[in-house]
Write a protein that binds this DNA or RNA. Structure first.
Length: 557
RNA sequence: UGCCCGAUGGUGUAAUGGUAGCACAACAGACUCUGGAUCUGUUUGUUUGGGUUCAAGUCCCGAUCGGGCAACCA
């Protein structure tokens, strides 16, 4: 089998890398994945992880994992751990190269001093409100801060006192001295150090001043010898700034920032802020709620790392900011699990069938194929008895011609069981079917037709005498519309939440299913792929999450 | 009304001046002890106007549309 994942990948970034290697610009590439530990990783990060780690792997380079923790107000160790877990789960390894931006604070402080000494930065006393005026607007140049020409010695002194904690939050800051007339606002004397009296999860109270992203990022990349610094499109306008710091500080090996489009997926949202909001608002049951597009959510839902890597491979890398159909992710999962997941029979909406001419009390153990796509998966025995459960939707009292299931007078195959012919049904006072009556053909044991007779319909079933009962959670898309964030002014995107994204039911299952350990996946035949929930399952009592239903091309007409 | 970036079927993505291809989705048929899978087929595309060229999705200029940028967030 040729998996797309192993097919050679080509995109504009890999083309650049190939070229850099060919021309000798680099002999070895170094990339990095730099998450801020202020939230859980989602599938959009998965795309970046696959690109950063994946390209390093393909070109025999290395990829560093770096916690971009320059803003202590939102970061924590909980997130650091979750990020490591998720990247490992996805199948990537950073080896020795695990770093924290915080570990570079001293070097960054020195770099800022260098800039000041060289007349390229200064301590500014303008308030944020005042700065808005000085900065100007895109169509008009700004004017220099009155502190712009402050002597380097004086700035150096102020900077040291900032570090020592002599000033209040936000009263002073350090600005790079670049170009107040630039049409790119980011070049109009951006802040590189600010005062924040917030304990850092890693450095504690050691610092009360912290570097900003724009200053910190190029330095970290340079410190680590990163060759290709891959980030998303919104940083495009920051690139001149990135290059400026690298040049002004005289780094010989210059990392190159290259931007690509972030991932958007239909029927969900991929922004840390919005996901946090769903978690904190109790709209989902946590970061790992199986409906969440977080990696931990997808993991708990039952998605495999392979399917996610395959998805990230198929979507490609470009600079076009579009929406990827979530159906592609589901396809990747089905494509894999079709080949690997053992089959089992489970009835989600049971109704009893009584086989009138089958001996009461008799039980036969029928041989069932574990996976038709994989002969090596072998077979198992499933019990058959006089009363079985079938899906309520597999019976119709007044059925159209194309309904290849149970209906009065029609014969269907009970998969691996017998051929049965429906003789009628029993209904309660409200007209609801409570029991289906059938007769079976003893010559069709195992579902075989010795006479070569063709039967159009085959349905799944579970013997009533041996039916296990399990909790099954049926998940649907988190949002009911394709583009949840596309809401009119003043309308909250959360109104697009799908109220039916979770339905919990009790399903009846064949006995073998009860033995499933947490994390075990099945294909419930004719229904969908499921996994025994990692958290709520107990030995002998698994709880299942439906990962994704099987395709259903039967149109009820 | 400033700057930066982008635009190829419904969606995502190839074609690096030389036959617009692939995948998902949709639809149809074949096959099937899963209305699954598999196989076959079908529908649908280079935003627009100029220019360069024997030849333009590709290069140049203009327009249109979309995204990003005015945190001491990343």
């Amino acid at each position: 089998m040729t998996t797309p994942e192993t097919a050679p990948i080509s995109d504009f970034i890999r083309d650049i890398i190939t070229d850099d290697l060919k021309t000798g610009k680099h002999t070895r590439i170094v990339t990095r994945f730099p998450p801020e530990p202020n939230g859980y990783l989602h599938i959009g990060h998965g795309k970046a992880v696959c690109l950063d780690f994946g390209s390093a792997l393909e070109f025999n380079g290395e990829c560093h994992l770096r916690m971009d923790d320059t803003n202590p107000s939102k970061e924590s160790m909980e997130y650091v751990e979750s990020i490591k877990t998720d990247i490992r789960w996805l199948g990537f390894d950073w080896g020795e190269h695990f770093y924290y931006s915080a570990d570079y604070f001293e070097r960054m402080y020195e770099a800022a001093r260098t800039l000041i000494r060289n007349g390229k930065a200064y301590v500014c006393e303008l308030s944020q409100e005042q700065w808005k005026e000085y900065r100007g607007i895109p169509t008009q140049p700004g004017k220099g801060s009155p502190f712009r020409s402050r002597p380097a010695e004086e700035s150096l002194d102020f900077f040291a006192r900032m570090r020592a904690g002599e000033f209040g939050d936000g009263t002073l800051c350090v600005r790079a001295k670049i170009d107040m007339a630039s049409p790119n606002l980011h070049l109009r004397d951006p802040v590189i150090y600010r005062i924040m009296r917030v304990p850092h999860y890693r450095t504690g109270d050691a610092w009360c001043i912290y570097p900003t992203y724009d200053f910190a990022h190029p330095l970290e990349d340079a410190f680590e010898g990163i060759t290709h610094s891959l980030c998303t499109l919104e940083f495009e306008v920051h690139r001149p700034l990135y290059d400026w710091f690298i040049a002004e500080l005289g780094f010989e090996k210059k990392p190159r920032q290259i931007e690509f489009a972030r991932l958007n997926v239909t029927y969900t949202v991929l922004s840390k802020r919005k996901l946090l909001e769903l978690v904190q608002g109790g709209l989902v049951k946590g970061w790992d709620d199986p409906r969440m597009p977080t990696l931990c959510g997808l993991r708990r839902r039952g998605f495999t790392p392979e399917s996610i890597r395959n998805f990230c491979h198929r979507i490609g890398i470009t600079k076009f900011d579009g929406y990827t159909d979530i159906a592609l992710l589901e396809f990747c999962l089905r494509d894999e699990l079709n080949k690997t997941a053992p089959r089992a029979m489970a009835v989600l909406d049971p109704v009893k069938v009584v086989i009138e001419n089958y001996p009461a009390g008799q039980v036969e153990w029928m041989e069932a194929v574990n996976n038709p796509e994989d002969p090596a998966a072998g077979t198992r025995k499933v019990p058959f008895s006089r009363e079985v459960f079938v899906e309520r939707e597999d019976f119709m009292e007044d059925a159209p011609k194309k309904f290849f299931r149970l209906a009065p007078g029609r014969e269907v195959r009970l998969r691996y069981g017998y051929l049965v012919t429906c003789t009628g049904c029993v209904k309660d006072a409200s007209g609801k079917v409570t029991e289906i009556r059938c007769t079976y053909d003893p010559a069709t044991q195992g579902g075989n037709t010795p006479d070569g007779r063709k039967v159009k319909g085959t349905i799944h079933w579970v013997a009533a005498s041996h039916a296990g009962r399990v909790e099954l959670r049926l998940y649907d898309r988190l949002f009911k519309v394709e583009h949840p964030e596309a809401v009119p002014e003043g309308v909250d995107y959360k109104t697009n939440l799908n109220p039916e994204s979770l339905k919990t039911i009790e399903a009846v299952v064949e006995p073998s299913v009860l033995q499933a350990a947490a994390g075990t996946r099945f294909q419930f035949e004719r229904k969908g792929y499921v996994i025994a929930d990692a958290i709520d399952s107990a030995p002998g009592k698994p709880v299942f999450n439906q990962i994704v239903p099987l395709r259903d091309s039967w149109t009820k007409t």
